[in-house]
Write a protein that binds this DNA or RNA. Sequence first.
DNA 1: TGTGTCTGCCCC
DNA 2: ATTCTGC
DNA 3: GCAGAATGGGCAGACACA
Length: 411
Amino acid sequence: MRYLKLAQAYDEIESTSGTLDKIQIYSDMLKEAQSKDVDKIVALTMGKLHPDWKNEPEIGLAEKMAVQVIAAAASVPENTVLDILRETGDIGSTGESLLREGAQATLFAEELTVSKVFSTLDEIAQISGSGSNKTKISKLAGLLTDADPIEARYILRTVTGSLRLGLGDMGIIDGLSTAFTGNRDVRSDIEAAFNVCSDLGRVACVLAENGIDAVRAIHTEVGIPIRMMAAKKLSDAEEIMEKIGKKAFVEFKYDGERVQAHKNGADVTLYSRRQEVITHQYPDVVQLILKNVKAATCVLEGECVAIDPETGKMKPFQELMRRRRKTDIKSMQEEVPVALFVFDILYLNGEDVTSRPMLERRKLMEDTIEVNDRVSLTIGELTEAPERLYEIFEDAINTGYEGVIAKAIHE
DNA sequence: TGTGTCTGCCCC
DNA sequence: ATTCTGC
DNA sequence: GCAGAATGGGCAGACACA
């Protein structure tokens, strides 16, 4: 498919306010695409080339460098670009208008395809080392030279991560459902597949090539991160109990980094909330899981917290941030010791256990994890009284926790 | 080699 | 992460 | 009420340049 088709769909979506209308436009565009392009289209619309957990390099080119790209592609001084950027506040429109003025550049332009745009951006992401910024800039400038102004607008927004279509993950999912089944009825099936494989491009590809039943067959695998559930912030104890139902399991909220740990025999992989691989940052946590998690295959969720090993007291998040590095891991491991507080189990010995009731999962964790001073379950308590919930909250705050998380138990 | 700038779907 | 907006 | 977009603080990596 021509990239122009995608760019025109983006343009329509952007200028349409209704969510359903946006979805319809996106769906109509998807229907015209060859199935080999569908995963790339979805990836680009999500603003990334690859899922984070695949550990691919970032494009590594943001607004400052994009200014140089536009200057090169439109043959204008950087200050001209900066002036228009200040007016419009948008790097995409800035590139679009400057390229429109210098239209001679597009006279003998190659027609851009989705595939070409995707692969060029991927090549740019791979470039590193001395002189790489210049190479990245000239490569992207080359792409813009072949681009229609409207294409340039969205290529620039894609690389800088500011597509702002008003179409998020759920909109894309609805668009996929509509395009390949005619209505939005299977959106939850698509979402469920996305939740367990964390790759909507792959789901889209499966849907386009093999249909919805193949999407329904996508299931959890150890080593592929599961999308984490987001908590909602509430401020009133009664409101919480009402929302959650009769009984709630109330846990302390730890001030650390959320970690999803996958154990597959002797292999352990750790993922961040955004599903980046963070295994190398926490070799101590990897060892903990190898030694203290008594399961062949297992997926756990927990909070990694910096601690004072003498007192066992938790340290603030900023301390933990110093562990986010690629070098001197060994010395940092000693300087910033951590503990893991596990609060959920998603997979155990080949079985997806996410549909088990909360307290049963808690029992599975207790049976699977050999607790010590560096790895333990989160502190929590079952209650149905708002007054008790409030007491636990006060207790949490007074003891240095961030607050509490309340979960429905679904007994 | 040291310093400054930019980048990170960064983490919270 | 929080906060705001438009639907 | 929700999804999406816009925003902040702080830290380390990567590169440019002198």
